[in-house]
């Protein structure tokens, strides 16, 4: 718990920068009272969001790989360890829809299975610096957003997960042809550690922008943030 709280401190003590850490108003222990360095770094992170949005080309595809390049065994990663994975009951599961969407009827697994499917072998790059290659299959998010009558001029698509995780992405990235609502991993239905029954798979962003075990999807113009973004990671985090 104390470790979790430690990590919540947005930006750590600037050890070598004594001058910065003695500036008035510095309080590295409380996220509610960001100090000067925190504010400056947050402003730069928002600037970097804008630069990345400008750099994003909807026609540039993430590289795809042959089946022989797939990482085996697949690597589990979450903000808890594998023993604590939340197991969702697929039979009663449904995807709730909220926000600027015309048809908010929830979707069940069978509805998603009946939708057009695509499969890709792509690279997942973790913010930590490692990368894995996997095969994901599912419904293109762009198709899904149009099918439910989402306002594709809105700024954000927001995701909520069964384990309390939440994330959001920009609309142009959501409409990218490789962005999937994934149902399958390595040719089989997703397993609980890898996001059963439905996850976002977006190879144009870092791994933490690929939320697992989705329970709700929304479209909004109000910045929804994200679990890690609230702790200091850059929001856009595009590759």
């Amino acid at each position: 718990m104390s470790d979790a709280l430690d990590r919540r401190r947005l930006l750590g003590r600037a050890l070598a920068f004594g001058a910065l850490s003695v500036l008035p108003g510095c309080n590295y222990d409380n996220l509610q009272h960001p100090d000067f360095a925190d504010r400056a770094l947050r402003a730069m992170s928002r600037w970097n969001d804008r630069v990345q949005a400008a750099l994003f080309d909807p026609h540039t595809l993430a590289p795809t790989f042959p089946a022989s390049a797939i990482t085996r065994p697949p690597r589990f990663n979450a903000f808890y360890d594998e023993a604590h994975v939340h197991v969702v009951d697929g039979a009663s599961w449904q995807l709730e829809l909220f926000g600027n969407i015309a048809e908010k009827r929830p979707w069940r697994l069978a509805d998603l299975r009946a939708a057009p499917q695509e499969s890709q072998i792509t690279r997942l790059i973790c913010v930590e610096g490692w990368r894995v290659i996997g095969q994901w299959g599912g419904v293109p998010l762009g198709w899904f957003l149009r099918r439910i009558g989402a306002d594709t001029k809105a700024r954000y698509v927001s995701f909520r997960c069964a384990d309390g995780y939440y994330e959001s992405i920009d609309m142009p990235s959501a409409l990218h042809p490789q962005t999937l609502l994934a149902l399958d991993f390595l040719g089989k239905p997703l397993t609980p550690p890898f996001g059963y029954p439905l996850r976002l798979r977006i190879p144009t962003k870092l791994g933490f922008k690929n939320p697992k075990s989705l329970v709700a999807l929304g479209v909004t113009n109000v910045f929804p943030g994200g679990y890690w973004v609230a702790q200091g990671y850059n929001w856009f985090s595009g590759s």
Binding site: S45, N48, N234
Partner: peptide, 12 residues
Amino acid sequence: EWLGGAIAWHLA
């Protein structure tokens, strides 16, 4: 102090 803080410094 941690990865998120380091990335924020690095990309600023």
